[in-house]
Design a protein around this nucleic acid. Structure first.
Lengths: 176, 176
DNA sequence: GATTGTGTTGCATAGAAATGCACCATCCCG
DNA sequence: CGGGATGGTGCATTTCTATGCAACACAATC
């Protein structure tokens, strides 16, 4: 399952006039899958196949399985033992792995502090959004979201990880 | 899977002197399961059975499956497509579903605005943290995290959903 | 236009997880 | 003790998900 099913990098000729009969592209189908599983609790892949069919999109369970993998979807347990799919956050790409993040942090991060499940990252004036963007795209586990100002980034950290652990990790990345 | 396997509510007689040969109680086994899947990436239940065996605890895949359900564990996708189990945080409860959220929003939310993938929710002074807490616990899909001030909540929205959609959803909840 | 390469999909099946059922242990009353 | 109720487990099986493989579609290149 390593390198299969990468996004088509080429332009879409957009030959379809205005109709959407039953044969969408992969990207569009996956977008629909994401929408469906966010809008309602989808218990399994067979149900998802049916939902897609109801939208006029034909696909097999195998394809849906691959779509969910591409989307990074996971199966979560609802309180009553029911299961549903969910998409943790960023669908994919993050082609800038830890190396890039380390470089960015090493260059621009001057201080890391934390409080509860928040981490405050300081940068030179005007650089916050660059760093925050890199952090966002890195898909670093435990990072729920970031808010960037001019020279400050607020990192919201997963509760089960904690701001202290994340602060330590980010400090290491920055080499400080 | 409705009401099976509830925790033993009774006291443990603790008849075992000091030895732990191979027959722990359910609770202890589940605690061990939680520790194991936190300490390392466990790809599947068979592996977990082996790990338990290595600890001197005998259990079948069926039992492990039920344990994971009780723990509320989910199977997450690692970057490379590998899978591992994880325990989200709160094992369960969060029984406050949309009804509670709707009531809280209806009572305390006075304005909803958005920008990019952020949504700003305004409340009467001092009420922000209550609303944010309810929103957090609701597990509403697309909500990555919240930051609450005194009368303002900043909601970080999943990039694939967007602030506009979330703002609409929250406005509906608040009935405004 | 033929060739080749890349990417996507379905089919069939392997692999993993959930569960119906039976059985056993414990506890609770009378 | 003797029911009877409750809960936990294993076994066997079903249900659900992942994947090897071949076919196909499309684009780039010759």
């Amino acid at each position: 399952m390593s390198d299969r099913s990468r996004e088509t990098p080429r332009k879409e000729p957009a030959r379809e006039p205005v109709k959407e009969p039953a044969k969408l592209g992969k990207t569009q189908r996956q977008y629909l899958v994401a929408k469906l599983i966010e809008a309602q609790a989808v218990p399994n892949q067979a149900a998802l196949v049916e939902l897609l069919a109801a939208e006029g999109v034909v696909a097999t369970q195998a394809t849906v399985s691959r779509d969910l993998e591409d989307l990074g979807a996971i199966k979560v347990r609802m309180p009553g033992g029911e299961t549903a799919y969910a998409i943790p956050a960023l669908p994919k790409e993050q082609l800038a792995p830890e190396d890039h993040l380390r470089r960015v942090f090493g260059d621009w991060v001057v201080e890391v502090a934390h409080s509860d499940n928040l981490v405050v990252v300081r940068t030179p004036p005007g650089s916050a959004h660059v760093v925050a963007s890199a952090l966002d795209r890195s898909g670093m586990p435990g990072v729920l979201g970031t808010v960037a100002g001019d020279d400050t980034i607020l990192v919201v950290v997963a509760a089960d990880l904690g701001g202290a652990a994340m602060a330590r990790r980010l400090s290491d990345l920055a080499g400080i």
